[in-house]
């Protein structure tokens, strides 16, 4: 088994009396695609928020490449190589497509205020390199971001392209781990398949991917492993086919009787 990149150890997050994530543990290995599934309210997005630092776990720990990241700020976690996208798109709608990707590079660029005010050669070199890299990242989505589109506002893109742009922005941080929150939500089957292929390409390019997904075709077609959650607890983990047929998972989605019929 490849090296462990992320370890979640007994992470717990309460909101008042609700245990949104309860004693959750799992590992992610380098270069795999893992899907996080579960009914609405089962704690998937809270898990994402714990990993990316929007929330701090009440107990337990999260380790990125062996170092604890629990309690760090989102910006710091991003700098350690974890990028994410959001379920409800959170692009900088009134900034251009290219600028959206460039913002993702903020933490990797170093020009300070003085450099930026006087446009020192150092700052210009860095800026040019950033733009070249941003265009490279946008070119990873063939045909979707032609040059003419780079200067358009993100808000003018089609829905599917906005989802792609969010992935592009996440890639700009040169992450090792990519967290995708429902990457194909609202897409038609053809677009979903394209995104699924792209996610596999990203894995082959060396990224580790954890995604929340509801689309069964994408889960089955892309994931190496599936983790199922319900009421904040991990109820199953394993190969996609095994998890899909796990009685506990079927019960979580369909209820007791559904599980009886299925088994």
């Amino acid at each position: 088994m490849a090296e462990v990149i992320l370890e979640v150890r007994s992470a717990t997050k309460n909101f008042g009396g609700l245990k949104a994530v309860n004693n959750l543990s799992f590992d992610l290995h380098k270069g795999e695609i893992v899907s996080l599934i579960g009914p609405n309210g089962s704690g998937k997005t809270t898990t994402f928020n714990l990993i990316t630092g929007l929330y701090e776990p009440d107990s337990g720990d999260i380790l990125m490449q062996g170092e604890s990241i629990a309690g760090l700020k989102p910006g710091q976690i991003y700098a350690r190589g974890i990028s994410r996208t959001f379920q409800m798109l959170r692009l900088f709608s009134n900034m251009s497509v290219l600028e959206n990707v460039l913002v993702g590079m903020h933490g990797r660029t170093k020009a300070n205020v003085i450099d930026c005010m006087f446009r020192t050669p150092r700052m210009r070199r860095e800026e040019e390199a950033s733009i070249v890299r941003a265009r490279e990242i946008l070119a990873m989505f063939p045909g979707r971001f032609p040059l003419a589109r780079h200067t358009q506002p993100a808000a003018s893109l089609s829905y599917a392209n906005r989802r792609r742009l969010e992935i592009a922005r996440a890639l700009a941080g040169e992450p090792r781990l990519l967290l995708l929150d429902e990457p194909v939500a609202g897409m038609n089957p053809a677009e979903s398949m394209e995104v699924m292929r792209q996610i596999r390409d990203l894995r082959d390019a060396g990224y580790t991917i954890l995604m929340i997904e509801h689309d069964m075709n994408v889960i089955m077609g892309a994931s190496d492993r599936v983790i199922a959650m319900d009421h904040g607890i991990k109820i199953a983990e394993g190969a996609p086919v095994d998890v899909a047929n796990d009685p506990a998972v079927v019960e979580a989605y369909l209820g007791r009787r559904g599980a009886d019929t299925a088994s």
Partner: peptide, 26 residues
């Protein structure tokens, strides 16, 4: 000059969506 630099973009990103900006390293 500042406006057309990484710092200006960071400011604009914060104006547009602070949470997303923070998650993008600002």
């Amino acid at each position: 000059n500042l406006k057309n630099s990484r710092i200006g973009r960071a400011w604009n990103a914060l104006r547009e969506d602070e949470i997303a900006a923070h998650h993008a390293g600002v």
